[in-house]
Amino acid sequence: MFGLVNRAVERFVIDNYGEEAWSRIAQMGKLGVDSFEPMLKYDDAITDRLITASSLFLGKSEEILFEDLGNYLVSHPNCEVPRRLLRFGGETFADFLLSLDDLPERARLAVPDLEIPMIEVDETEASSYGYVVRVRGVIEGLEFFLSGVLRAMADDYGTLALLEIEEADTLGRHLRVAIHDTDFGEGRKFELAKRG
């Protein structure tokens, strides 16, 4: 798969734990490189080793690691690109959630051979405040990653939303999202045109 994923983990480790932590993880995981190139493809086995090594070195389960990574990609000041691209999804957090269906198509517009996990969003019941999000990709545990992304996006919109991962149906885990207050916080401003 594209180095983009590995690179995201690399930046996450460096920005939060420092260069030293990264080089230890690169050693432990026998990654064979000091740094990943986002636009080059790497063997999937390298990604597996990278995740195992990061989880071990940072002392957090892979679930927590994924969740933190998702949060980092949206909320860290060094990651302006993913946050902005996601905000194009809608004017409100609810609109954004419903735009997740389109995410793979959107990503492919920019990079045609990018493999993006399939995301499915359903509104639950009659209320428009409950959603179920399913994600399927080559990496196990993507629900946790998505949960981190969505929590950070809810903050970004200034929306209070509760997220839960459920082992609910035959399709495996899914994410339940309940919007409680759309005016909960300030949120961050989003202008269509990038400044500077």
């Binding site: 636009m39 690109v81 902005r84 691209l85 194009f88 809608g90 004017e91 959107r106 990503a107 517009l109 920019a110 990079v111 989003f190 202008e191 269509l192 045109a193 990038k194």
Partner: peptide, 24 residues
């Protein structure tokens, strides 16, 4: 902002594309 465009307007998709492409 997003709310200044009709939801059917592809202008938003164009802006999205411009930003995603330049990031790539």
């Amino acid at each position: 902002n997003l709310s200044d465009f009709a939801a059917t307007d592809l202008a938003i998709e164009m802006l999205y594309l411009k930003e995603a492409k330049s990031a790539a």
